[in-house]
Amino acid sequence: MSEPAKGISRADVSHLAGLARIDLSEAELDHFAAELPAILEHVAVVQQAAGDDVEAMSHPVPVNNVFREDVVVPCLTPEEALAGAPASEQQRFLVPKILGED
């Protein structure tokens, strides 16, 4: 990919769509490649806002150590768990063949 704030190419959009697991059509790639540079240019102003001394805020309300006790709570039944599945077999979720293994 090119450097930040310099825009975003059609190939970049295609790469990002791959990371995001969206099979964008050629027309969609054209469309987003034309549109995203303006959006990214607009949001790039955040780089001018704060220096290294400013903490990034990951949580708007600062709270630490929120834990639960190690105690069992009722599960879903397998029927409930599988009710929304596009396909299932042998009480398991049926998914198409998996190519790579991590």
Binding site: R68, D70, V71, V72, V73, C75, L76, T77, P78, A81, L82, Q90, Q91, R92, F93
Partner: peptide
């Protein structure tokens, strides 16, 4: 006894999809 982020049990060898939420 339970999972990292929920209260489902962690027993080894249970029937499939019986320890899910």
């Amino acid at each position: 006894t339970t999972k990292m982020f929920c209260g489902c049990p962690t027993e080894f060898g249970a029937e499939p999809n019986t320890q899910v939420c």
